[in-house]
Amino acid sequence: MDQSEIDALLAGGGKSPKKPKGGKGSEPDPAPAPPAPQSAAHGEPHKDGSGHVISELDTVTAVTERESNKVMDQLDQISRLVSRQQQLITDMMRHEGAQAQGVQKAIHEVMSASKEIQDKVFEAMDLMQFQDITRQKLERIVHHLRQIHDYIVDLLGTGLKSDAERPSISHTIAQTGTTPDENKAHADAVIEAFKSQKKG
């Protein structure tokens, strides 16, 4: 748990999220603090605790985005190293001592394996889309929490309504999985229908 998460918990007076206890399997706390949520007002805790929950969700979003970018950094670095390796192999292939058939075959195999690694790195990068999808799902939860909060404030005639502006939310995200292009055929069909309707 880093400082901003601790601060959010202290401000909200909530329970600490469960974490594996120390020992061999425990991981060190990440050192840098996560970036601030998109609007500082989002995280202001209300006395009834709803602001605390929203603040925690904002923190989760910020932390996952930060950590996802760290994974992307690592993947970028692997990609650069593999490119460098491929360059070295290409240079090696031209070397006089590497012209024997057996050596050339081995070099080609190494090159092919290297290409496979590069493809897997790109695939892993593409899979990081899950972060944005998860973030939007959390945003939808926040939206509903705020609606419930404001309804209760109206009902009781006391308390502060949520005032911070949030991103618009996706109403259909629940039908969206994390399998790429799950909705491609559907979207393409709607586009086609729209275009032919416009033409007609």
């Binding site: 889309q129 999808i133 996706s170 109403h171 995200i173 969206t176 799950e182 559907h186 586009i191």
Partner: peptide, 22 residues
């Protein structure tokens, strides 16, 4: 991430040329 038909149509009406669902 907006995958509903109404969303896609609304985006096209607003001036989007093509649409990809995440």
């Amino acid at each position: 991430t907006n995958a509903a038909k109404e969303d896609i149509v609304e985006a096209l009406q607003a001036g989007v040329n093509n649409y990809v669902v995440k």
